[in-house]
């Protein structure tokens, strides 16, 4: 143990208690660190814009995305159609704005499901131990052996989404990615809970006669959630990319549903002649994925004092 480390740590501790009498949780301290990071603000602004787009696309455009002006198909960006028009004569800007909904929905729903499922199973495995733990470990091993995209393609192919309503297709995509996405989060939660379990405050609660449910709820989950939040934020971006890939391959969302993946797929035909058709949906997709990954990074840095 070096004292230099002790000094630096002590300085942080004193800083934490600088304002006497004020209650400050670890979360509040992390927020203080987060507030100072430009990366965090950039990602937050981007995410806010995309989420607004998903909820109220009409805030961003008055053009009907389904209004095909065939005469102007493949038009380059101009004052009338900022991003130009695609092969069907749709306004690309408006299609990009309306496409955000599918991506954000898939990202948020998949993350919710994987966090709930993976978090619960991981916690259970770590807390129960014994054969439950062994079983969960083997099951996650099996899922790890299946590549995410391959598995999702198989699932989508088996459920035949063609022609089904918008939300059903979205849910199918969400299910496909969730089934393959939860095991990594379960693993993460399991190891995180196992680090929390031997802490004396868990033992103290047991000695007081607290019920297992109370121990999990009050002591284990709040202290074990950190890594799960960080990784699932980063994963959110990855899920959006996966959705786009499925749609691009023609087995996720399908026209007439508007989605970035579908737009990219449609634009491939004009890769050489009309690259703007490809560029704008791809740019938005990349920005969204990047924004979530940046947010995850920023949160991790805030929770991890090493990089502070």
């Amino acid at each position: 143990m070096t004292e230099s480390a002790t000094v630096v740590q002590a300085v942080e501790a004193t800083n934490a208690a600088g304002d006497v009498g004020e209650a400050r949780s670890l979360g509040a301290d992390a927020w203080r660190a987060l507030r100072k990071k430009p990366l965090f603000w950039v990602s937050l602004v981007l995410i806010t814009i995309f989420v607004l787009m998903a909820i109220w696309p009409s805030l961003f455009t008055n053009t009907d995305p389904d209004n095909a002006v065939l005469r102007q198909a493949r038009e380059r960006p101009n004052a009338n159609a900022w991003f130009g028009r695609d092969i069907q004569g749709y306004d690309i800007y408006s299609r990009v704005v309306y496409g955000a909904r599918a991506s954000i929905l898939v990202g948020v729903l998949t993350t919710t499901f994987t966090v709930l499922l993976g978090g619960a199973i991981g916690t259970l495995a770590a807390y129960a131990g014994g054969w439950v733990d062994a079983l969960v470990s083997r099951v996650t091993d099996i899922f790890f052996a299946i590549p995410l995209l391959l598995g999702a393609i198989l699932f989508m192919a088996a459920t035949q989404p063609r022609g089904k309503p918008y939300f059903v297709i979205i849910l199918l995509v969400v299910t496909a990615i969730s089934i393959l996405g939860w095991p990594s989060l379960a693993r993460l939660m399991r190891s995180s809970v196992m680090q929390v379990l031997p802490n004396d405050y868990v033992q103290a609660a047991r000695a007081l006669g607290a019920s297992p449910w109370r121990i999990i709820r009050k002591h284990i989950i709040p202290n074990a959630m950190g890594p799960l939040i960080v990784v699932s934020t980063i994963n959110l971006g990855a899920y959006i990319a996966a959705e786009a890939t499925l749609s691009f391959l023609g087995i996720g969302l399908q026209p007439p549903v508007i989605s970035w993946g579908v737009s990219i797929s449609d634009a491939i035909v004009g890769l050489r002649t009309t690259p703007h058709m490809l560029a704008f949906p791809s740019l938005f997709l990349s920005l969204t994925v990047l924004a979530f990954i940046m947010l995850g990074d920023a949160i991790r840095d805030a929770f991890d004092p090493k990089t502070r």
Partner: peptide, 12 residues
């Protein structure tokens, strides 16, 4: 004296 200062080193 307003706050926690370092404790037994090696045991923090």
């Amino acid at each position: 004296m307003d706050g926690p200062v370092q404790d037994a080193e090696g045991l923090v």
